[in-house]
Amino acid sequence: MFKIDPDRTDLALEFKRKPYGRHSPDLQAVLSVMRGLPIEGKHLLVTTKPQEEWVLARMTGSPVRPELVPEHVFTDIREAEWLVFKLRWKLLTGRDLDVD
């Protein structure tokens, strides 16, 4: 199975620049792993203002239910994508993603 190379921070920067749309094949491979993580423990967003404000949440339990992570509120959904990307990077590589 594909493993994320923690040294490929260039892919992280590519995602940060453009979270949606056409990606390089290498970034797509990373995203397929990240987005395909099991639903239990998966991060998601809960809308607090339709299409304008979201709070981070995580699916927990069995069957799963959303649990808010209220310290993370976003008014730009791309910032939420970036935060979750970094959390997943740490989870999957064991390393903090130290790029901006």
Binding site: Y20, L31, G36, W54, A57, E81
Partner: peptide, 13 residues
């Protein structure tokens, strides 16, 4: 598990 892959973006509710 797979829904987010098919969407290409975070799940939102």
């Amino acid at each position: 598990d797979i829904w987010e892959v098919s969407q290409g973006k975070l799940l939102v509710m």
